[in-house]
Write a protein that binds this DNA or RNA. Structure first.
Lengths: 238, 238
DNA sequence: CCACTTAGTGTGCTTTAAACACTATCCATG
DNA sequence: CATGGATAGTGTTTAAAGCACACTAAGTGG
């Protein structure tokens, strides 16, 4: 039990533990991810990267991820779940950093607030996610080529997209991406954005209704066309 | 970029990253887990715990898990996958240690070799896993009460049992727990041990055969009764 | 009032899951 | 060598779930 709090103990080499958070939202039928710009210094000067930071001595990685999410995206109490831990010795060229990656699902209305709530650092920005095949996922801004992310963040993003696609089919995470009241068409649009392909309207609606996860509210959403019934979730638990 | 290799940098507090491996096998129709005994010193002197150790400076957590598996269980080239990262600040009462947990599936024939291959430390031992409900999983030796594991290893074990049960239903991990040639009854027994409940013989056999994952070999397993055809996997990839 | 746009609804077919019981083959024993 | 004991092996029926598929309804704006 001697001197374990110095960097010389072989069990405690100089090593940091960071969290990186893949924050997803769906806006206008498109899956989007929140990215931050790195400072103009090595490594990856000015590159886009996932929001993240070091885990503090008194917090768990879960806490750190929630804190990062609040700081960078300005949202709290959203769906946040551990994704995977990335630990290649050279994933950070400066020194050893192990990254515990998380993914979060944020409704577009909350997300809009978050993206401009940051004052100290450069504002994070929403990028669209392009993921036709299962093996690739890239972030891009409309009309521009995909960006290459810093560190191994492209791999983390890819892993996160695979995860939410797989999870969407058997756990009700689609609801996390919508405001409290929503139309079934909006919910379907979220599913299509996450899955990356269209789904059948009638099958989708009957399956959702049969699941008992949503309840019809008495309000309707008016627009230039036929009004749509607004629904709400029957359970508010994660 | 100054002095990041000392323990004084706030981003690099004294902190260790360890791996813990939940090594499963199935023997005699029972799911078993490999446990090691802790040394007779604080914390948890003499308690049973999952095999594990610190990640070395030049290896990834995946590498470290494979190394631990080779050292403690004496097996290589087995199914090994990351489970979850446990990071509560006080999970190790001595100092901060973040644990990247893995789970491994080992066939009973290989596992038997491993359990006695260790010379330096006390030999690890196989414990049965009792997990009637989804929420609980405990390790015990036949005829004895369940043991309480060191640190948060009971929680890790529980998480691992949930994971393999969920995964068994849609990915072919059952094969990892058997020797190259096996009977369908043996395979069914593995499924039943992992799931914790019996399955229907005819439905199981027809589903397995239709899946195309196994191929009939020309050998049979002889016993005191009707011989059973031996099967093998059609794919040897993880 | 007409054109446009989105909301909303049901049926038939195919596939998959789940329940269920008997015959076949080998060995050991008397 | 006949019998009993133990495990291997095999199909059908029913219910539920997935999937393809096209028209009517209800608003708005010109």
């Amino acid at each position: 039990m001697t001197a374990i709090h110095t960097a010389r103990d072989p069990r405690f080499p100089a090593l940091g533990v960071a969290v990186d958070v893949v924050v997803f939202t769906v806006r206008d039928g498109q899956l989007e991810v929140l990215l931050t710009r790195r400072p103009d210094e090595e490594p990856f000067p000015g590159a886009w990267s996932l929001p993240g930071g070091f885990v503090r001595p008194d917090e768990s990685a879960d806490d750190a991820a929630a804190r990062e999410l609040a700081e960078k995206a300005g949202v709290e109490d959203v769906f946040l779940e551990q994704l995977y831990t990335f630990s290649a010795p050279d994933r950070d060229p400066r020194s050893r950093v192990v990254a515990v990656a998380y993914y979060a699902l944020v409704s577009a209305d909350k997300a809009a607030l978050g993206a401009r709530a940051d004052g100290r650092t450069r504002a994070p920005q929403w990028f669209r996610v392009q993921a036709e095949s299962e093996e690739h996922a890239q972030a891009f801004l409309p009309g521009q080529p995909p960006v290459t992310l810093a560190f191994d963040h492209d791999e983390i993003l890819r892993t996160a997209v695979q995860r939410i696609r797989g999870k969407l089919e058997y756990v009700p995470i689609g609801f996390q991406l919508l405001p409290p009241h929503f139309t079934l068409t909006e919910l379907q649009s979220v599913y299509e954005a996450v899955l990356g392909h269209p789904v059948d309207k009638r099958n989708f609606r009957s399956k959702i209704q049969k699941s008992g996860l949503v309840r019809e509210s008495d309000a309707v959403k008016k627009g230039p066309h036929r009004p749509a019934k607004l629904f709400e979730f029957t359970q508010r638990t994660f």
